[in-house]
């Protein structure tokens, strides 16, 4: 995926990019080593290393993924905003369900889908006879 499509930091920071795509975990944003056991999320099909105890929102942020979805009308990029379950900006599909990423703890192998530009697409209707 091209950086401009994913809204990630990948194009801006080589260190994150290297780390995110290698087994070695990026520590660019993480403060200190006192974290949980290493785990892996599957984000839009890509493995993303993270640590037990982190929220999905934090893990995505640490991996350089800032854009989580697009807004419904303007299709503008959106990312985590309030991080306390209030604003709903980080609601993405986690294990098949729409959940606020900021309130959901990571689990090993958790499947995360950031909502794309066309989700939900405009509702189509049959012509009326």
């Amino acid at each position: 995926m091209a950086p401009e499509d994913t809204g990630t930091d990948a194009g801006l920071d080589a260190r994150t990019r290297t780390c995110a795509s290698s087994p070695r975990v990026s520590t660019a944003l993480r403060i200190g080593p006192a974290r949980g056991t290493p785990l892996t999320l599957l984000v839009d099909g890509e493995p993303v290393p993270c640590f037990a105890g982190e929220t999905v929102a934090a893990a995505l942020l640490a991996s350089g993924r800032r854009r989580l979805r697009r807004s419904p009308r303007a299709q503008a990029p959106r990312g985590a905003f309030c991080l306390m379950g209030s604003c709903q900006e980080c609601v993405i599909r986690i294990d098949g369900r729409l959940e606020p990423a900021c309130l959901t703890e990571v689990r090993d192998g958790l499947v995360v889908e950031c909502r794309g530009a066309a989700d939900p697409p405009p509702v189509r209707r049959l012509p009326v006879g």
């Binding site: 419904p72 729409l98 989700d119 939900p120 697409p121 509702v123 189509r124 209707r125 049959l126």
Partner: peptide
């Protein structure tokens, strides 16, 4: 909330 087309 908005959801992908589920019915018409």
């Amino acid at each position: 909330e908005r959801l992908a087309p589920a019915m018409r």
